[in-house]
C-alpha cells in the first residue's frame, strides 16, 4: 500500500547522467590527459520532493551484501499489497534495528523512489518500526549516524542551543 504523505524540500534530487564532454584539457589527468569515457553513469530519473511517499509492508528479506551500482547500505525487500519493493536503509542502522528487521516484520518506509542501475529503489529517509520512528537521512538527503547510549551518556548530544552547527 502506498500513500503519499510528506513533502519535504531538497530531499532527493536526481543524479545526472551526462555524456562525456570534450573540453579543453586544462587539468592533467594522466600523461596525455584524456578523460574517462564514462561519468555520472547513474541512470537516475528525476525525483521531486513531491515524490516522497510512505510505503507499508512486511519484511520479506534483509540484504546486507553490496550490489554494484545499487545504493549502498542495508536493503530490505518489502512485500506490499501490490509488489515487492527494494528499500535502501543506508549503512548506519544500529544492531538493534537490524535485529528487529526479521522476516514478516511490519514496517513503513518514508522516502523516494529512484532508479539506479536499471532497478527501482525506495531510498528511505525514515523507517517506522513497531511504532518507533528511525530517521535515516536529514532533510537534505544526507545520512545520519545515531549515537549509541554510551555515546550520548559520555558526550551529551547537541541541541540547537548547545553544540553543533545550525
Amino acid at each position: 500500500m502506498r500513500t503519499t504523505t510528506v513533502t519535504r524540500k531538497r530531499f532527493f534530487v536526481p543524479a545526472l547522467c551526462l555524456a562525456w564532454l570534450v573540453a579543453g584539457k586544462a587539468i592533467a589527468l594522466g600523461n596525455d590527459s584524456p578523460q574517462p569515457t564514462s561519468f555520472f553513469n547513474h541512470k537516475g530519473e528525476s525525483i521531486t520532493p513531491a515524490n516522497e511517499i510512505t510505503v507499508a509492508g512486511t519484511v520479506q528479506k534483509m540484504v546486507s551484501t553490496h550490489t554494484q551500482g545499487a545504493p549502498a547500505g542495508v536493503h530490505i525487500l518489502l512485500a506490499t499489497t501490490q509488489e515487492i519493493v527494494d528499500a535502501c536503509l543506508g549503512p548506519y542502522l544500529t544492531n538493534h534495528v537490524r535485529l528487529s528487521l526479521t522476516n514478516g516484520q511490519a514496517v513503513q518506509v518514508v522516502g523516494v523512489f529512484r532508479v539506479s542501475g536499471d532497478q527501482n529503489y525506495l531510498i528511505a529517509r525514515q523507517l517506522i518500526l513497531a511504532g518507533q520512528q528511525i530517521t535515516i537521512r536529514n532533510e537534505y538527503g544526507f545520512l545520519l549516524r545515531a549515537r549509541s547510549v554510551a555515546r550520548s551518556q559520555s558526550r551529551p548530544s547537541r541541541t540547537n542551543a548547545d553544540g553543533g552547527v545550525q
Partner: peptide, 9 residues
Amino acid sequence: DLEVTGGPP
C-alpha cells in the same frame, strides 16, 4: 558514491 562515479570535465 557507489551509485554515481566518474570524472568528466
